[in-house]
């Protein structure tokens, strides 16, 4: 699948994550993450985002994520929503 346009999902409220996805010129998954729990969970959040992207068989995407302490189910949901909005 291909990301065709910029799309957003989520909010800046606590326990949520704000996601912006956009097309990327070349191949690869680029993730720019800001999180209130970056030190402890930064890598895990990036992996959850990446796994969700891969489940849609997307090979080229740029993701900006601003995390406010979201659990995995929220991260997966917001990424899925943004991707579906961008297709």
């Amino acid at each position: 699948m291909e990301v065709k346009r910029i799309a957003k999902s989520g909010t800046f409220e606590s326990n949520d994550i704000y996601i912006i996805v956009e097309p990327k010129g070349d191949e690869g998954i680029e993730i720019n993450l800001e999180s209130i729990v970056m030190k402890q969970f930064g890598e895990q959040i990036k992996k959850t985002i990446e796994d969700t992207v891969k489940s849609f068989k997307i090979k080229s995407i740029k993701i900006t994520a601003k995390d406010r302490g979201a659990l995995d189910y929220t991260i997966k949901s917001r990424v899925e929503t943004a991707i579906k909005r961008a297709l």
Binding site: D72, K76, S77, K84
Partner: peptide
Amino acid sequence: DSARILVRNAIKT
């Protein structure tokens, strides 16, 4: 769309 996906994943998890 967003809420539907969130609720679906919440029930699953």
